[in-house]
């Protein structure tokens, strides 16, 4: 039902190839700063891949969080620690790592190829099928009707017109996050605060903190 155009397929393969090439640079490059640059490029390509998979909001989050924040964090780490300017040496377990990686990829691709994935064509309800790409109308009493049935709605009933969830995913995702997953959403906030405080505690200079401690006890 959701046809994939030739252009999309070409874009997918080009972006995937660039992404995998950049990620190979990340794990093989000796110069850590160059690896960090390649990592930022990989994140950007992954973001483009989300746009190709029609997940616009996830793509924007990817670019904001990964390209904007984590890459900068990596660059800071590389610049602060002068030691790694000498280069990241590979460990002795290189052959083992290669075998493990090949086995992981082999098992994952075997599973992907040999599983009968259900497809969007399996949706038998034409209303549900239309809600994926064309759109649907939500009535105030919770009923869902097709986008063409709008003139049939009685007067005085509130209607919410939505475009297809897979075509315009941002609105649906917003509702999903604050309704069905509100608890997980709140816990993520708690987790980020905990990570922030933990990071600050770890980064605190041990000398200066012990000085303030003794100052506190004497006062």
């Amino acid at each position: 039902m959701m046809e994939v155009s030739t252009l999309t397929t070409v874009a997918f393969w080009v972006v995937s190839a660039v992404m995998l090439a950049l990620s190979l640079i990340v794990v093989t490059q000796k110069d850590v700063f160059r690896a960090a640059i390649a990592l930022a490029g990989t994140f950007l390509m992954v973001g483009v891949l989300y746009f190709i998979l029609s997940a616009e909001f996830v793509g924007v989050v990817q670019i904001l969080v990964y390209v904007g924040a984590i890459s900068v964090l990596m660059a800071f780490a590389v610049m602060f620690i002068q030691d790694i300017a000498s280069g990241s040496r590979p460990s002795q377990g290189r052959a083992v790592a290669l075998i493990v990686a090949v086995l992981i990829f082999a098992s994952l691709s075997f599973t992907a190829q040999n599983t009968k994935w259900s497809s969007m064509d399996d949706i038998t309800n034409p209303l549900a099928s239309a809600a994926m790409t064309k759109g649907y109308i939500e009535l105030s009493d919770g009923e869902v009707i097709g986008i063409d049935a709008l003139p049939m709605v009685d007067e005085g009933v509130a209607v919410y017109e939505n475009s297809g969830v897979l075509v315009d995913s941002t609105g649906g995702l917003g509702v999903l996050l604050v309704r069905e997953y509100i608890l997980a959403f709140q816990i993520i906030g708690l987790l980020l605060v905990a990570a922030l405080i933990g990071g600050l505690l770890l980064m605190r200079n041990p000398q200066s903190s012990s000085e303030t401690k003794t100052g506190d006890t004497s006062a």
């Binding site: 794990v27 040496r89 590979p90 460990s91 377990g93 790592a97």
Partner: peptide, 12 residues
């Protein structure tokens, strides 16, 4: 898999 290779093979 590429990430897994990097985790095991790098020392830094």
């Amino acid at each position: 898999a590429i990430g897994a290779y990097g985790v095991v093979s790098r020392r830094s």
